[in-house]
Amino acid sequence: MPRLDVCAPAIVLRTVDYGDRDRIVTLLVAGHGRRGAMAKSARASKKRFAGALEPLRVIEASYIDRDPSRLATLTSAEVIEHFAGVESSFDKTSLASYATELTRELARDGVPDDDLLNLLVGHFRALSTGAETLDTLEDLHTTFVLRAIDGAGFLPALAVCARCHRDVDASTQWRFVPEAGAVCAACRRPGASGAEVMPPTLRFLADRALRSSGAPDAPHVRVRARSVLRDMVRGMLGRDLKSAHFLDMVLR
């Protein structure tokens, strides 16, 4: 592959210190997808990357790409946008970290995904500029997670039965199967896994996936929706995200 010089907006998804002076960063780059890059002397010199190699920042990243199977070489990075409102709140930082980690898992190396990048940046802006109550924060979080999963093509059925496509209503029992979604009593396979879930919880999640705030929801609906959302992510990735513990500290 010929040498490719890239200069594009990006968001830092992860940083890992390497040796005494260097730092390896994982970026989600506009038009280029997820990319790992080596930032030489990033820890020794604060001038070259001047505070840019931190999560929760949009940067202008310049790097040299010689071989997609190896780390790119980051030559410079400049902060384009930071989110002071997020950085000054433990709750918001925790939610933003969860969103960052989920994005890191959903993005693919070298596959452009500007929708996911814009979704994450929009989420940071919304967290930073508004969202002062815990319910508002949770709504933003739920909407982000559902839309990110939807964008990756993994959103399970929430408004209809995943198997017979009947609308979710109160006339029957419903279960949530992480890999499929809502399943009505008639379609449930004997012995199949899946926890019982009430229609208001499924409607709450379906509304959030459409970015509609819907009617005010009872606390028990939010608590159950939180658990279903976590099952959804766990079912998709086969494990919890590392930052899930922080999410629990904020939302419990």
């Binding site: 001038k47 001047a50 931190e54 902060v79 946008e81 002071a84």
Partner: peptide, 13 residues
Amino acid sequence: EYTDKATLGRALA
């Protein structure tokens, strides 16, 4: 002139 936005923003805040 050479200070990044995040650091300068924080210094002002």
